[in-house]
Design a protein around this nucleic acid. Structure first.
Lengths: 147, 147
DNA sequence: CTTTTTGTTGCAACTGGTTGCAAGATACCA
DNA sequence: TGGTATCTTGCAACCAGTTGCAACAAAAAG
């Protein structure tokens, strides 16, 4: 897990600490392979240690998110979903409202939008964490199927 | 209030009813002139009638939003904000994280983004209700001031 | 005007998520 | 190795917003 070494280094750089809870959340995210809710990640962590509190899960996911290790997507169903992105380029996320699939779009592909907003509104938008809703190729034709 | 006549017509078309509560929310939104939280709109309605429940405010704002009368923006502080848009073209909203100002961008100005997503990902995005975060012209230079 | 249908409301309970705080644990230094 | 500063945790209370449901009320029909 090269990821963990980098995590420890980043923590130390910010004067933060490595705790068993933080290790377990990182490990749960490795297991997950894809977007999961905080509750699902909580369940994975509980299999490792029963005494961890859900608020610690949220705090740790938040930390990992701010450090750029984790992407957070609001799929529009009132529950955020999280996934490891480790050190990839930031993505804009597309959520299909037909099938629930989440697709990442490298941020450089929407650079023209950034330029347009800068030019016309003087607005410097931060697209690191944007989620767009719509219909994917599959669901566009057929009638939308349940998630 | 031309807005109210159209509202009544739209309600009837959908088999829905005009109630005092719905009229009061619409009237509160007219008073507001700008984005306000559900709680602020609730306070305005309470000045008209003390017995209205906050859940009715939320349900009505939701209805007005789905009917296209109201824009809903998550300013990133954990509280949604609502404003009358009556029958304007839908907007993408820019929220300045420096000063909290909310600016609307007519949706046709981001049409190129829609086309790019359609072409490369086959994804038909719905930008009617997108909010982007960043810094406005004023706040870009100076150190960000509190909201 | 009364009845009937069905959409709407207030209420209370609940949801996902956040926060204040005292107790506990980590990392550093002697 | 022991002491200490301070970061982190679990807990419980809280927050904005949603939901199920029985009572209510708008609109249409008689």
């Amino acid at each position: 897990m090269a990821c963990e070494k980098i995590f420890i280094r980043e923590l130390h750089q910010r004067g933060l600490r490595l705790t068993p809870q933080r290790e377990m959340v990182l490990s749960a995210l490795h297991e997950a392979k894809g977007f999961e809710t905080a509750e699902e990640i909580y369940e994975r962590v509980r299999r490792l240690s029963a005494s961890v509190d859900i608020s610690t899960i949220y705090r740790t996911l938040d930390l990992l998110h701010h450090m750029g290790f984790v992407a957070s997507v609001d799929a529009g169903d009132g529950q955020a979903r999280f996934a490891l992105t480790a050190l990839q380029e930031p993505h804009v996320h597309l959520v299909c409202q037909g099938c629930g699939r989440i697709v990442g779009v490298p941020i450089h592909e929407v650079e023209p939008l950034l330029q347009a907003l800068r030019a016309r509104y003087g607005f410097e938008a931060d697209l690191d964490d944007v989620t767009l809703y719509g219909l994917c190729e599959n669901c566009r034709g057929s009638s939308p199927s349940a998630r």
